[in-house]
Each structure stands twice: as C-alpha cells, then as structure tokens.
C-alpha cells in the first residue's frame, strides 16, 4: 500500500468511526447520512478496479437495496426520511453503522495495485532496453572471449536422475 493510499484510507476509516459514534457533532442526520455515503464511495474509488460506470453508483445501489430490506414496501427515500416516517429516529446510528460495516467487510481488489504494477512493468522494460543498449556499446570496446559459449544451439544439460523426460 503506498503512502497516499494509506493516508486516504486511514482518514476515511477514522472519519466514519467518528460520525457513527457521535453523529450530532457532524450535523443533521440527513447531512451525516450523505457524508457517510460519500466517504464510502471515495473508499471504493481507491480500492476497486471497476469501470467508472459501475463503481460510481455501486454504493448508492447497494444502499437502496439495504434500505429496501430494512423498510420493505417503502418508497426509495433517505434513511433519515424513513426513520422520521416510522418514528425510529433512535436507530439512526445503528442502521447506518450496519451498512458501513457491510461495506468495509466486502473484499475488494486494490485498483492502485493494478496501476502501480502496469507502471512498474513499463519502467522495467524501458530500463532493460537502455541497459542492453549500453552493454552492446560497451562490448564493442572489449575483446570478445573466444572460449565462452553462451549455449545457443547446444543440447541442454541432462541430469543423472530424471523424473520427467525433457521435451526440447
């Protein structure tokens, strides 16, 4: 995990904990709900290598399904509105917290790892090309060894005990 990723995820985790522990400090229930959802979306952007069209709505889609499970038959509204409707305001932290926990436990593949790996492979390939070029130029100035045989075209070494026959 690189430094930016660590700092970002650390910040998101701390902020989520704080908001769920004392939501009133962070604003109205509706305001806290929207902030929590945005933080979860940001976390997914950092962690999951999904196409934008899928990733950008993933948290929202799952939240809508979650609320439909908790409030079957209700219209698609915010948690704040639903709790107000059913006089269950006291359950705000618990219900929002359960959704957050589910999101945090879902296994994700880290998108940053894919990007970093592709960049690293490009760098590796470029460096090798440059070194090969340098070596070729350096070898022009050094006497070639007459004895050394790089092995091309020769038969491979056979081992005294073989378990599988070679096919080359």
């Amino acid at each position: 995990m690189n430094l930016l990723e660590q700092r970002l995820l650390g910040f998101i985790d701390r902020r989520l904990k704080s908001m769920l522990r004392a939501p009133a400090v962070w604003g109205s229930d509706e305001g806290v709900e929207l902030q929590v959802l945005q933080l979860l979306e940001l976390r997914l952007v950092a962690l999951a290598p999904l196409p934008d069209s899928i990733r950008d709505s993933r948290v929202q889609d799952e939240y809508v399904r979650y609320l439909a499970t908790e409030f079957p038959g209700s219209p698609p509204e915010t948690l704040d509105a639903l709790l107000e409707r059913f006089d269950r305001r006291a359950e705000f932290s618990a219900l929002l917290g359960r959704f957050v926990e589910h999101q945090l436990q879902r296994p994700v593949v880290r998108a940053l790892d894919f990007a970093a790996r592709a960049e690293r492979e490009d760098t590796n390939a470029k460096e090798i090309r440059i070194v090969q070029e340098l070596l070729q130029r350096a070898l022009q100035f050094s006497p070639a060894s007459e004895d050394f045989d790089p092995g091309f075209g020769l038969r491979p070494v056979e081992f005294p005990i073989t378990q599988e026959p070679p096919n080359a």
Binding site: P156, Q163, E164, P166, N167, A168
Partner: peptide, 16 residues
C-alpha cells in the same frame, strides 16, 4: 514442450 522442459530443468536440478 517448452514448459515441460523448463519445469524439468528446475525439478531435475533440485533432485540432483
């Protein structure tokens, strides 16, 4: 055949 040969080179060396 390429994979078998290279696999044999590694395993054969370890056995040796």
């Amino acid at each position: 055949p390429c994979r078998n040969f290279l696999q044999h080179s590694i395993t054969g060396l370890q056995n040796t």
